[in-house]
Simulated assay, not measured.
Amino acid sequence: MTELEFVVAGETYTATVLEDEAPESARALEAMLPLESELMHVRWSGYATWINVDDAELSEVPRENHTVYPSRGDILLYPGYKNEQELLIACGPTCFKSPAGELAGNHVACLDATRDELAAIEERTLRDGVQPITVRRR
């Protein structure tokens, strides 16, 4: 089982990659690592944050283990079928959508963070703007 570290503004969290449920997405995510980027508040989806991954090659990633309604801590990989490519991290009630409508992202990993930690991440991006994030193998 692959584990990742998500370092958000100096705070480190562990995520478990769902290799059996989303194998192609897991391989695509691993190919992006290490990823240094910006974590932003979602614009349309509710209590969540996202990382733009438009530079990654995701055109061959199929729909797998996909959902519109991720649970708190779920990490979705969206290969960009209707919108820009991204990793979405659900921090609370979330309906993944964009100006193009609802989007189904591939549930590729689960962030091991408490309800309060996820709320703090989401609130920080809403209040203070983008936050530095690094995603790497653990």
Rank of each mutant, 00 (worst) to 15 (best):
G80N: 11
Y78Q: 08
G73Q: 02
K97E: 03
E21P: 00
R138S: 13
R72N: 02
K82D: 05
G92Y: 12
R127Q: 06
A26E: 05
Q85E: 11
V7E: 15
L35I: 07
A100F: 01
A120I: 04
Y13E: 06
D54H: 02
A31C: 03
N83A: 15
M32F: 05
A100D: 01
L126A: 12
A56L: 05
E60C: 04
Y69R: 09
E36V: 12
E122S: 13
A104H: 13
G92N: 10
M40L: 14
E30V: 06
L88V: 05
N52W: 05
D20A: 14
L76M: 10
A104C: 13
S98H: 10
T12F: 06
P93E: 15
C95Y: 05
W44K: 09
F6V: 10
F96C: 08
E5L: 10
N83Y: 15
A56H: 04
A31I: 03
A15N: 12
L29G: 06
G129D: 06
D54P: 00
Y81S: 09
Y81E: 14
L33V: 03
Y81A: 08
T114S: 15
P62A: 13
M40D: 05
D20R: 15
Q85N: 12
E24S: 08
F6Q: 02
N106S: 11
T134W: 05
E64T: 04
H107I: 04
M1Q: 13
W44I: 00
L4I: 02
S25E: 10
R138D: 07
M40N: 12
E117Y: 06
P62Q: 14
T67C: 04
T114N: 10
I89K: 00
D54A: 04
E64G: 03
L76C: 09
M40F: 13
L103Q: 13
G10C: 09
N106A: 06
V61E: 08
P70W: 00
A22W: 04
E64A: 01
A26M: 09
K82F: 11
I51F: 04
E84Q: 14
I51L: 08
L35R: 13
S37D: 12
M40T: 09
D54L: 00
T114A: 11
N65A: 01
L4N: 07
T12P: 02
L118R: 08
N52F: 01
N106V: 07
T114P: 02
K82N: 05
P93I: 14
E5Q: 12
R127D: 02
L18G: 06
D128N: 12
G129H: 07
T2C: 02
A9Q: 10
E11H: 15
T125M: 12
M1E: 11
N106K: 12
M1H: 11
C110D: 12
A9N: 11
V53H: 04
N106H: 11
G73R: 05
Q131W: 01
A104N: 13
Y13R: 11
K97Q: 10
E60Q: 13
A109Q: 09
A28C: 03
E102V: 12
T12R: 15
D74T: 02
Y78E: 03
P99Y: 15
